[in-house]
């Protein structure tokens, strides 16, 4: 549904988006991750036809956004960053305006408004003007606008920004419910959101894609993926760490805490020389050494750690 090919956007001397390519099919939910100013919004604005790209192309449902903008835009529902809305209009007036521009008239328009209002829980504020709404309602009003024509492609710039935890949960459910017959792209800062709702995630940093895969694949890139966590009672940490470190497949060990003879240790696997049975090997080691093992488990990677390691802030990377 969405095909993005070597997209670039330059503002003056600043390269905001540099050679970004990806595609999203129907049924996929693509999470767009990246630090602030990485180029997420700029990319989305180019896909929705708000910014013309400096170079590269965007195709939505087979229509090029520059050559057939109207046909492409018809397929897209868009929730811009900060969920803008006309301050002096009522929620109903605003949705009615959006429906009209989407070519919905008469009964079809009524049904569309009704459906969007129901989906976004706006019944209570339907005839309130937008500038009197709380942030959550304002956000949902703009979300309703993007869903009003039941678009095949849904692009949302931080759809859960400024919502309370319940509302966030609702929006995620909504995305999941809609996902089977739409192509969805959304950007977020919240990593659990990606794990929960996305079938694929792209991490973008300083305008370029630095990672692209399923949440599980991305997590596997974490240094901690496959690490073995131990909680045990032993006399002193040094011998424990030493014998763990000598095991094949362990690249290094970490002492997480030590108190009253109780240790928490993590053994980080060597990705280049993996040991498929690392957990079992460690278990056997502990019984040989007569450690009193309280807990042992294999860790899955953590997305936030992957995120941090590939999108280090400028100050760190400069060194």
């Amino acid at each position: 549904m969405i095909k993005v090919k070597s997209l670039c956007k330059v503002f003056g001397a600043k390269i905001a988006v540099n050679n970004v390519s990806f595609s999203v099919e129907r049924g996929e939910v693509l999470g767009f991750l990246g630090p602030n100013g990485a180029g997420k919004s700029t990319t989305m604005r180019m896909i929705t036809g708000y910014y013309p790209p400096t170079s590269g192309s965007v195709e939505v449902g087979g229509f090029d956004i520059l050559e057939n903008p109207i046909e492409a835009k018809r397929l897209i529902g868009y929730l811009p960053e900060n969920a803008p809305g006309y301050a002096d209009m009522t929620v109903h007036g605003f949705l009615s305006f959006a429906a009209e521009l989407r070519g919905l008239h008469g009964d079809a328009r009524k049904r569309a408004i009704h459906g969007a209002v129901e989906m976004c829980f706006l019944e209570n504020v339907l005839f309130q003007s937008i500038d009197t709404l709380s942030k959550g309602y304002k956000h949902r009003t703009c979300l309703a606008q993007s869903l009003i024509h039941d678009p095949e492609v849904l692009i949302m710039d931080e759809p859960t920004d400024g919502l309370d935890p319940n509302q966030k949960h609702e929006v995620r459910n909504l995305i999941r419910r809609m996902s089977p017959n739409k192509a969805i792209i959304f950007s977020t800062h919240i990593l659990e959101e990606v794990e929960e709702t996305c079938s694929r995630a792209i991490i973008i940093d300083r305008g370029t894609i630095v990672a692209n895969g399923t949440p599980a694949e991305l997590k596997a890139r974490s240094e901690w993926a496959g690490a073995v966590y131990l909680q045990l009672s032993a006399i002193g940490s040094a011998p424990v760490l030493e014998s763990l470190g000598q095991l094949s497949g362990v690249i290094r060990t970490e002492l997480l805490s030590e108190a009253n003879g109780r240790l928490e240790v993590r053994a980080i696997p060597d990705k280049k020389n993996p040991n498929v049975n690392l957990t079992r090997a460690i278990y056997e080691l502990s019984s040989q050494q007569h450690w009193q093992l309280d807990q042992i488990h294999t860790e899955v990677g953590r997305l936030d750690e992957v995120f941090r390691s590939i999108t280090l802030p400028d100050t760190v990377k400069a060194h």
């Binding site: 036809g49 109207i70 803008p84 809305g85």
Partner: peptide
């Protein structure tokens, strides 16, 4: 100022 320009110009109209 309101940011609605982005909304308006991504609608299917010229």
């Amino acid at each position: 100022r309101l940011g609605t320009m982005e909304l308006l110009l991504t609608m299917p109209l010229t």
